[in-house]
Design a protein around this nucleic acid. Structure first.
Lengths: 230, 230
DNA sequence: CGTAGAATTGAACACTCTCAATTAGCGTGG
DNA sequence: CCACGCTAATTGAGAGTGTTCAATTCTACG
């Protein structure tokens, strides 16, 4: 659970910048108010940003790259709670410690703001307080949808839902470049990587999607994917 | 999706009041500030309190009884996100519509506060705004823990976790009276009711717990239950 | 090119589900 | 108060989805 998160390194090599552009609005989620002190930081592939139970000193926003947040059992089983793509805020806590571990999936740059300064701003500007609540509420909505997936959906339904989610979040010109490996997807969906792979192969065989390498996916029949979900 | 939630009926017959006392602190979660307009309402067993996608007019706090909040797929599969017991707040949304359906599990009385008046209070009193965020954040923490359970744990591990959770929330004198049936437990844990029943039987055979009827459970070996969870 | 990690594919197994029958519990009415 | 009837819960047997283990194949990158 040791981390370099609180000691940002000035490395800068983004080999993987797959995602759509950030809107001004999203940036303002954190920075738009009362000139908060924000700085950039870069993490290399697989580097830990913060660990579970660590004090929550900063709030983060992905600028480029991708981040996974997860919980782990003592024997190594891992549940990824969310993937955070450019524009997404993560690491926001109302209590003083992180409930999840966050790691860069690929080389990633983030914007970070001191939690204390955010709390301060929320004390002055009501819209900041409101924004913090709204962000947490959005995460809760995602978690609730994901519980439905984890508890009730079949393997194929899970994969279909995942594809549609990612399509909505990082499709550029009908193509998406997944930043995460099969094991990440599996740990997000509560499956094994073999099962994920089999589901994708089946969908490709049916012409529902096209694979250009394992990570480049083109959805050819979104309707079919939506129909899979009961 | 029709509901009587917004038209509180003055029925009053609590046949089932199993849970521990409320602390003043918990009540004040909603009522403690600036004399918010709060009223009571009663729901009978299995009555819907609000439905998914309905406008969120009220925020609720359980006074007695128990409530389940859930999402459903079109074919009837249901994922219960949480059980709400006396003292618990539910139905709090930062947006204007409910994301889940809420139903009384047994005859239940709730305290309800208009969302608009809460929003108003949050605009004046910063500690109210903070409290709203904290409540949502607490729900998020629960959801994250539950995703780990749903995605990674075995049937026996799920049941063990459930028993410890309920033990902590509604044990009185080492005994707990579950308000929910096996199917509710199953839909909460992402299992079938038969699997839940089998796990409980196994635990009883091992002397880990004692059943007095299906709903009255005494934990005899909490350590064993904790060890089940990797 | 050559290597190492990532992904695919196959076959056998296991855990949980499904279907079915039985038993227990509880409210209702005779 | 007991008998009845309905729902809930337990238990069993068999089937199926997803896992596990293992062997290739692919691909990204030095």
């Amino acid at each position: 659970m040791h981390t370099a998160a609180l000691n940002p390194t000035p490395v800068l090599r983004n080999k993987f910048v797959p995602a759509p552009e950030l809107t001004v609005d999203q940036f303002e989620a954190i920075t738009g108010h009362t000139g908060l002190i924000a700085s950039d930081s870069t993490y290399t592939r697989h580097e830990e940003i913060f660990g579970e139970r660590e004090p929550a000193e900063y709030v983060y926003q992905v600028l480029s790259g991708a981040v996974r947040t997860y919980k782990m059992l003592s024997d190594g089983r891992r549940q990824i709670a969310a993937f955070h793509l450019p524009g997404d805020v993560f690491g926001l806590e109302s209590r003083s410690t992180h409930r999840l571990t966050a790691e860069a999936i690929v080389d990633t740059t983030v914007l970070l703001v001191k939690r204390s300064s955010l709390e301060e701003a929320a004390g002055v500007d009501l819209s900041v307080a409101r924004k913090l609540w709204t962000i947490t509420s959005g995460e809760l909505k995602h978690a609730e949808d994901h519980m439905l997936l984890l508890g009730q959906k079949s393997a194929m339904e899970k994969v279909a839902t995942f594809l549609l989610e990612m399509d909505g979040r990082l499709a550029v010109a009908g193509m998406m470049a997944l930043p995460m490996c099969r094991r990440d997807i599996a740990d997000y969906l509560g499956l094994t990587l073999e099962t994920v792979s089999r589901a994708l192969s089946q969908l490709q065989a049916k012409g529902v999607l096209g694979l250009s390498g394992a990570r480049q996916i083109q959805l050819r029949n979104r309707r079919h994917l939506r129909n899979i979900n009961a």
